[in-house]
Nucleic acid binder design. Sequence first.
DNA 1: TTGAAAGCGCTAACAG
DNA 2: CTGTTAGCGCTTTCAA
Lengths: 334, 334
Amino acid sequence: MSNIRAVSKIAGVSVATVSRTLSTPDVVSEETRKKVLAAVKETGYKPNLMARNFRSRKSYSILVLVPDLSNPFFAMVISGIQQAAKARGYSVVLGNTMGDAEVERELAHQLHTNQADGIIQLSSRFPLAPEDCSEGITPAVINCCECVDDDSMPTVTLDNVGASKAMTEHLLGLGHRRIAVISGPKASPLTAARLEGYRSALEGKGLTYDTRLVTEGDYSLASGAAAAGKLLNAGKRPSAIVCFNDEMAIGAMHAIRCAGLSVPADISVTGFDDLSFAAFIDPPLTTISQPTETFGTEAVALLLDILEGRASGTRHLTLPYQLVVRASTAAPRD
Amino acid sequence: MSNIRAVSKIAGVSVATVSRTLSTPDVVSEETRKKVLAAVKETGYKPNLMARNFRSRKSYSILVLVPDLSNPFFAMVISGIQQAAKARGYSVVLGNTMGDAEVERELAHQLHTNQADGIIQLSSRFPLAPEDCSEGITPAVINCCECVDDDSMPTVTLDNVGASKAMTEHLLGLGHRRIAVISGPKASPLTAARLEGYRSALEGKGLTYDTRLVTEGDYSLASGAAAAGKLLNAGKRPSAIVCFNDEMAIGAMHAIRCAGLSVPADISVTGFDDLSFAAFIDPPLTTISQPTETFGTEAVALLLDILEGRASGTRHLTLPYQLVVRASTAAPRD
DNA sequence: TTGAAAGCGCTAACAG
DNA sequence: CTGTTAGCGCTTTCAA
């Protein structure tokens, strides 16, 4: 592996000149630049980026913490992050945390061993261990796609309240009055926001929020099926179920079919995320589409603003949703 | 940020001793170790891993090249890779290539700038540019989940021939005789392997391979729908369609429904991969389950064998499939 | 068992 | 515009 010294020798210049030719070509003369580039070609020299990064105290990599990579929604957001990062010269290091706070902390530690310059967290927790937080310094951690209580962390989120409200209003508009919910984990601020939208839509119609209609899931297919099963067997059946992601909606529809009922004839079901599958399953799913690509782009932009000292106060970005009406919702039968 | 020198000063030892205490504790005396560890705690010292890695000429990171991260199958494999890598002290750097050879090469270049120690490639191409290949040295690139013509690249693959054959035999066993295929890209060795399994099953029953029954897709939902549309409109309808992944199967079922037909009553449909969705859609999909987790584990193991000089010849690992029969297949109507 | 010293490959003052 | 020089923070001989 040839190094910068070998190149400098062949080109008959100093190592500094080689370095300059490669990083700031405009400050060296035409002539020397040519000599250097020729020598680079001759030796097949590739700068050792580990050395460069070490020297400049930047790793040029972003750690992405994701609770569950096999969730296609996260996968798409990460895909967006990676694209944006690459365009800015950063690489993306993956941290699949399985929702475990301990694992998050462990991985986030990379920030303090200089293995990552910043973190994009896709779940709602602040990932750094207390001992990893230098006092008074803005930690380069930003939150994406979630809601956070802690106001100090920059965020990129969807208008979850609005989205959930719009979805509920869509069902109310079709004539539904018993609208159940399969939510995410109750403790999560994201769940709270979406429940607020749901409640606000109900109250707009003079209906009251009935806790018996709100069940909890964990965003998995199986949890959607289980929650729907509970709703079907508990007292008066809802005529529609709002699910807080597409997976749970698909799980719920499965359970509904297993109970001998049909969607949307007997029960309308809605999702959230608009996975690519949503349009192709039977029935095609009414859902909320999120701008996944933009999540990634904006998250990276926000993070680099911090890293490159452009941080203009803690910023909270809210992105717009889109209601996508398909065939899983219809007017109630009775 | 405190460094090793600060610690050494406080502990009253040399920097070398601090270094040794942290990396090979057993070679320093009980007493000094205590002093050093106390100083480490006092200063809150975290070794700068960028410096350490630079010095030891290892980045301890693995680059994973994936053609499409939003494909849940790849996401799961990567999840497995990350877990295995983490357990061995490596991090995973993500490279979403969108199937573009140029992008692959660009990303793979990281190997030669010391940003990654090795590469796990999830598509069939050899990712390194010719100029990035040092003569005679085993490049630390391994292939996972795909088939490769080039025999020199270590691989972890499924028994694709067997799986495809088993699936076709399942349909033959139900009485199907006109079995169509929606394959992956024709140029891919993976497609070739699965077609071979299909053909071999047909021939086992004395049937001949009919190219008119074999259509090409690109693993996307839409391509599955389009291919199925073609099959439905071209001469005599097949009674079953074997799809080379679950997405295309779901797309195909969608197209079949749109044509006013039903699965499996009119046409049986099978998938490949056994995504978590497969069991929950309507009808639940008959498919091939792959050991995704194991793919990741074995790929990492193989790669580290190379990196750590245990490479025992080019190894090709073949993992077993599992046929999962659900409700999307049934005996043909006539 | 420990310390002194060299140096990984590169960048960045500072002179010239 | 270019060269000299001094490190970045760490590991690793080599002696003691």
